[in-house]
Computed example of a mutant assay.
Amino acid sequence: MPTWEVLITFFGVALLLGLSPGPDNLFVLVQSAQRGWRVGLCVVLGLCLGIVGHTAAVALGLAAVVATSPMLFTALKLCGAAYLAYLAWGAWHAPVSIE
């Protein structure tokens, strides 16, 4: 059993981490401030849909399948790298607008 000092320290740090805004919260805040509450709500719904999809994949055992198959894991990594390269290409060639 941990000591009381360790438990109090753990609780304090966990509370601070739980209350601090993460990247999702900051993204919703920025989009809502720049484009309005409807866009902010769409961002929230998209983030929640991603969480539901990820949770469903884990619940169906997809994470265990990927973990046990090195070939599938490598394919997944390569698909992720290709997607990041596609996003970088689009960002690099996007028109610049000065507002």
Rank of each mutant, 00 (worst) to 15 (best):
H93P: 12
M71E: 14
L29R: 06
Q31Y: 02
T68N: 12
A94Y: 11
C48H: 09
L72H: 04
T74Q: 07
C42S: 00
A81M: 10
S97L: 15
L49T: 06
H93K: 12
L84P: 05
V65I: 10
F27A: 12
L45T: 04
G46R: 12
A67I: 01
G22T: 05
P95K: 14
S97C: 14
V58R: 14
M1G: 02
M1N: 10
A64L: 10
V43K: 05
A14F: 13
I8A: 11
T9N: 04
R38L: 15
L17Q: 10
I51Q: 01
V96M: 09
S69K: 04
A59T: 05
A67K: 07
F27T: 15
E99R: 06
L29Q: 09
D24L: 03
L62Q: 14
V39E: 12
L29I: 04
L16G: 00
A94P: 09
A33E: 05
M71P: 06
L41Y: 01
H93D: 15
A14C: 11
V28D: 08
L49P: 07
Q31M: 11
L26C: 04
V66K: 07
W92K: 14
A81D: 09
K77I: 13
C42M: 07
P70E: 10
P21V: 00
N25S: 10
L16A: 07
A94E: 15
P95Y: 13
A59E: 05
P70I: 11
G61P: 07
G46Y: 08
W4H: 05
L16I: 08
G53S: 10
R38H: 03
L62N: 13
L26M: 09
V66E: 07
A57V: 03
L17Y: 03
L62K: 05
R38P: 01
C79Y: 04
L7P: 00
P70S: 02
L87Y: 04
T3L: 03
V44F: 05
L49H: 01
G90S: 00
V39G: 02
G40T: 07
E99C: 09
G90T: 08
A88Q: 07
T3V: 01
I98T: 10
A91S: 13
T3I: 01
V39D: 08
G61K: 13
S32R: 12
K77L: 15
S32C: 09
V58S: 08
V44T: 15
S20P: 00
S69A: 03
L49M: 12
H54L: 08
A14L: 11
W37V: 15
P95D: 15
T68H: 14
W92Q: 12
I98N: 11
P23V: 07
F27Y: 06
E5M: 02
G53I: 06
A33I: 08
F73M: 11
V66F: 09
C79A: 15
G40A: 04
D24C: 08
P21A: 08
V13D: 02
L72Q: 07
V43W: 01
L49K: 01
G90I: 06
A88P: 06
Q34P: 00
A91W: 09
A57F: 13
Y86W: 11
I98D: 11
Y83N: 14
F11P: 00
T55M: 10
V6C: 02
A88H: 03
A59P: 01
V28H: 03
H54G: 03
G46F: 01
L49G: 01
A56Y: 01
W4P: 00
L29E: 05
V6L: 11
Q34T: 15
A85C: 06
Y86I: 07
L29M: 12
A63L: 13
